[in-house]
Every structure is written in C-alpha cells, then in structure tokens.
C-alpha cells in the first residue's frame, strides 16, 4: 500500500504527462492540417502525370525497345525495398505497421530465393529493421532536418533509386508507406515503382506528341518516379501526424482515467487513516 505522499506525487506526475500529451496532440493536429493541405496541393500534378503516363504507357507498350524504367531490365532477382517511416516516435503504430509490411514482404522474397536490399527513409524504420535486416541495408535518407518535405527531397530519393536501377544493383523497386485515409486509419501500402505499373486504360491517344511518344515517355518516366515518391512522402507525412494525433489523444484520455483512479485511491486511504486515528483516540479514551 503506497503512502499518501507517494500517491500525491504519482498524481502530480501523471498530470504533467497529461499536459504534455495534450500539447503534442494539439501540435499534431495543426501539423496534420498543414500536411493535408500539402498533399491536397500536390494532387493535381500527380493526377495529370499519372493520367498522361498511363495513356503513353498503354500506347507504347512494354515490348521491345520500351524504356527500361517501364519494361524492367528483364530480371526479377534483386528487389530494392524503399521503406518510408517517420523521423520521430510517439506516433502509435505508424512506424511498426510499415515495418511489419516490409518485413513480411522481405521474408516472402527471401523465401522465393530473391535478393533483398533495403533503403530506408526516416530513422525510425531503420532502427526497427536494423535487428534482422541490417545486412540488407544499402542506403538511408535522412529527413530529420527537413521541416517541410519538398519535391527536391523526393527527387533526391528518386535519384538514388534510379542510380541503383541503372547500375544494375536492383531489378525491382518497391516503396512502402502509409496511405492517409483518416485520422484513425492509415493504410500501410506497398507500391512497385520500377518497373512502372500504370492502371492501363488503353484509351486511344487523341494527342499529337512532340517529340515522339517514346521520347516523351523516356523523359517523363524518371519524373514520374520522383512524383510517386513525392506523393508517398506527403501521404506518409499526413499519416504520421494523424497517427500521432490519435495516439496522443488516447494517451491523454488514459492519463485522465489514471488520475481519477489514483484520486479515488488517495481519498480512500486518507479516509482510512483518519478513521484509524479516530478509533485509536476513542479506544484510548474508553480504556481510561
């Protein structure tokens, strides 16, 4: 049975914790709004890009002479997994869910006899994957100094990925990130970016192409890779804040419950000690 003083200290410390989690929740809410706006603002570009790429890809096809980024380099041996996580913790299951998906996929690929290479974006995922997959690490992108993820960051990642692909160090590239659905739901998503896959609507192209379709496709494919990575980074950013917000909301509520419980316990034991003292006084008086 803890003493009254212990209980009082305990209540004080839980109250402090509640203040902190409450503040974090509000900060996350503000950041979430900004992240969502950024994702919203980036949507027109990504949508047009995908639409045009699908039309082009359907027109050119994946036959002989198609760009390597689209058709692949003909092998399926080395898989590069780009795992995007956050730079900071305290965001619930956000990082674990991505890492879990990546781990599953990696194990599956190894079971099929493929080689797995892992590139991490954001340090939390790296820490979690370090235990079993440290030997597969080929690169890490540190975004901890970046306040707002910009297209330039995505380009940086894309360049590394494409350098690996061009250098025959990877045959298939897949990115892992959390797709933002709502504050309480973020969906861990796996998306193959090289060779590029487009939802093929083989709409007959009504456009004139200048220069040729093939040349445009070759020019746009690297940009499309960067755009997909950028979209993923933005979705991830919004998801992170959403996850943190709901995690902190839970923590705040939990702290409140805990304070209530401790307060009741505190009151009871105070009452008990008062009663005990009274009984001692009364029985002392009766004995006289």
């Amino acid at each position: 049975m803890p003493s009254l003083k212990d209980l009082k200290n305990r209540i004080g410390s839980v109250k402090n914790t509640r203040k902190i989690t409450k503040a974090m929740q509000m900060v996350a809410a503000a950041k979430l709004r900004r992240a969502q706006e950024a994702a919203e603002a980036a949507r027109p570009f990504a949508e047009r890009m995908t639409a045009v790429m699908s039309a082009l890809a359907a027109g050119v096809g994946t036959g002989e002479g198609a760009p390597k980024l689209l058709a692949g380099n003909g092998r399926d041996q080395v898989h590069l997994l780009v795992v995007m996580t956050s730079e900071r913790g305290l965001c619930g299951g956000f990082n674990s869910s991505i890492v879990k998906l990546a781990r599953l996929r990696a194990a599956e690929l190894v079971a099929q006899g493929k080689t797995v290479k892992i590139m991490t974006v954001g340090k939390k995922g790296r820490e979690q994957l370090k235990r079993d997959w440290a030997q597969a690490f080929v690169g890490h992108v540190d975004l901890s100094d970046v306040k707002r993820v910009g297209y330039a960051n995505a380009q940086g990642v894309a360049r590394q990925v494409m350098a690996a692909f061009d250098g025959d160090e990877a045959d298939v590239v897949t990115i892992f990130y959390n797709r933002f659905q709502s504050v309480i739901a973020q969906i861990p998503t796996m998306q193959q970016i090289i060779p590029a896959k487009f939802e093929g609507n083989a709409a007959t192209s009504l456009y004139d192409y200048e220069p040729s379709e093939e040349a445009i496709l070759a020019d746009l494919l690297p940009r499309s890779v960067a755009t997909q990575i950028f979209t993923a980074l933005l979705e991830n950013g919004a998801s992170e804040q959403g996850a943190r917000m709901s995690a902190m909301d839970n923590a705040t509520r939990n702290a409140g419950d805990m304070i209530n419980k401790l307060t009741i316990q505190y009151n009871r034991s105070r009452q008990a000690s008062i009663t005990k003292e009274l009984i001692e006084i009364i029985s002392g008086a009766e004995a006289l």
Binding site: V52, L206, D208, Y209, E210, P211, A215, D219
Partner: peptide, 19 residues
Amino acid sequence: PGAMGDMTAMEGHAPTITT
C-alpha cells in the same frame, strides 16, 4: 518552350502533348 522548339498555343489548338 517545347522540347522541339517554342510553340504558341491558342484556342482550338490540336490536342498535343509536348515535353
């Protein structure tokens, strides 16, 4: 500023995609 040279587009231009 198209890849093949500058072009000016106005209303009723033929549908075109250029880098």
